[in-house]
Amino acid sequence: MSMIHPTAIVDPKAQLDSTVEVGAYSIIGPNVQIGARTVVGPHVVIEGHTTIGEDNKFFQFSSIGAAPQDKKWAGEPTRLEVGHRNTVREFCTFNLGTTQDKGVTRLGNDNWISAYVHLAHDCQVGSNTIFSNNAQLAGHVEVGDWAILSGYAGVHQFCKIGAHAFVGMYTSLTQDVPPFVLVSGNPAGARGVNIEGLKRRGFTRPQIDAIRAAYKSIYRNNLTLDEAKAALAQQQADAPDAAQHIGAMLDFLGSATRGIVR
């Protein structure tokens, strides 16, 4: 039995694994590749140079791989890449990249993307993230693994959100968020460490304590950013069990381009 509904329109040039399901009235363009066991619900449009991996689920009314909302885009063959085992709920919009950046918008693996989420051009989203309803990313945003964006969170273009960070509901984010940090408000402010998330992911008490100490060096000890970096370097040496995690915070501070939420 065919896995493609008779009302769906699938371009003959599209490359779909034989196990892909396509629902009623969905449209699949000629430059689309879709991996095994992915399910495309009804009324979904997938277009552009879009590659989708295995075991994904796209719910109804999403627009995947449409042209970037960028006036500089002139039809270049930029791309969208979606990994494996992602859940994409209703009315989501994922755009292609632009030649002004990496030329590709990426979504990793095992992400939970709720309804009305927008991933703009050139966004780079890691794996195991959660985006609640109406979370919105402007262009060129980077989101690390295990990060959580609550409902209606809005992220300014070129911002970076570190791994395991948590962005609260209705937060307006215009600066970078270091790994493990919980931010909320409009404008956003740092509210502590995402301790509950770290516990759920198996971080040990000594590791969490070391991350909290690093957080205090950045946010609570009245240090300049350079002084905080020096403090983190010392803490990294003193806490071998958490050295990798403190190192991730230190590396992030060195690469922040818009300044960090403080």
Results as ranks from 00 to 15, higher is better:
residue 187 P to K: 09
residue 216 K to T: 13
residue 225 L to R: 03
residue 182 L to R: 11
residue 215 Y to V: 03
residue 188 A to P: 12
residue 184 S to T: 14
residue 191 R to P: 02
residue 183 V to R: 05
residue 182 L to N: 07
residue 190 A to G: 02
residue 176 D to C: 09
residue 190 A to D: 15
residue 214 A to G: 15
residue 207 Q to G: 12
residue 195 I to W: 15
residue 183 V to E: 14
residue 218 I to G: 05
residue 222 N to P: 01
residue 215 Y to A: 02
residue 208 I to R: 13
residue 192 G to T: 13
residue 186 N to M: 07
residue 201 R to V: 12
residue 190 A to Y: 09
residue 197 G to P: 08
residue 183 V to P: 03
residue 200 R to T: 08
residue 228 A to P: 03
residue 196 E to W: 01
residue 210 A to W: 08
residue 210 A to M: 12
residue 168 G to L: 01
residue 196 E to C: 01
residue 215 Y to K: 09
residue 188 A to G: 15
residue 205 R to L: 10
residue 200 R to S: 08
residue 189 G to P: 00
residue 204 T to W: 08
residue 208 I to A: 10
residue 196 E to Q: 07
residue 197 G to W: 07
residue 230 A to P: 02
residue 189 G to L: 07
residue 225 L to Y: 00
residue 172 S to H: 03
residue 211 I to K: 12
residue 222 N to Y: 00
residue 203 F to G: 01
residue 173 L to K: 08
residue 179 P to N: 09
residue 201 R to L: 12
residue 195 I to F: 15
residue 189 G to S: 10
residue 203 F to V: 02
residue 172 S to W: 01
residue 180 F to Y: 15
residue 198 L to Q: 15
residue 202 G to T: 11
residue 210 A to V: 12
residue 198 L to A: 03
residue 192 G to Y: 06
residue 191 R to Q: 15
residue 216 K to G: 10
residue 204 T to Y: 02
residue 177 V to L: 12
residue 209 D to V: 09
